[in-house]
Amino acid sequence: MTKKILSTPIKDEDLEGLNVGDVVYLTGHLVTCRDVAHRRLIELKRELPVDIRGGAIFHAGPIVRKKDDGKFEMVSIGPTTSMRMEKFEREFIKQTGVKLIVGKGGMGPETMAGCKEHKAVHAIFPGGCAVLAATQVEEIERAEWQDLGMPETLWVNRVREFGPLIISIDTKGNNLIEQNKAVFNEKKKPIMDKIKSQVRFIK
């Protein structure tokens, strides 16, 4: 199977054929962007210091080391829980024109709506695989809003075949994790009943 690779800037056509559960990789630029950066843009109405139109963001707070020559080295970078950004993401997609949002776990109806309206996708990078991810970062090109501290700084990474990225919300508004949760909830009732009949220790 050949790897499906997206390159920034990402165009609408690149995403329209993607469905939830597809696996893609990213080559180009990936900018870390999480809680406070979202809050600054949406609530405090500050402009993002990086243009991410057609770009990709990563819900992540990495460990970065400053090297002797003043450059930054990516030590460890894995996804953080995307759901925390749910309340901002629809508006964020609209204002920034971002096309690919990478994180961990699912997101909710607001992000689904944003992805559908503006042709964007959310993808899951396997949580906890932070060194693997760091080895796919070729260089940290810029670091913006450093006043936010290491986890919240906007690290502008040049990446090569960054992934696996599992599409969890597609441009049609399908949501993989929500679908999975519905399956889990349906399955669990009879399983619980079976267990409960065997743990009546209070008689």
């Binding site: 030590v75 906890g128 695989c129 932070a130 080895t135």
Partner: peptide, 11 residues
């Protein structure tokens, strides 16, 4: 992580 001697998860 073992080979590069780095924290396996960033958190």
């Amino acid at each position: 992580a073992d080979k590069l001697d780095r924290p396996s998860c960033q958190d």
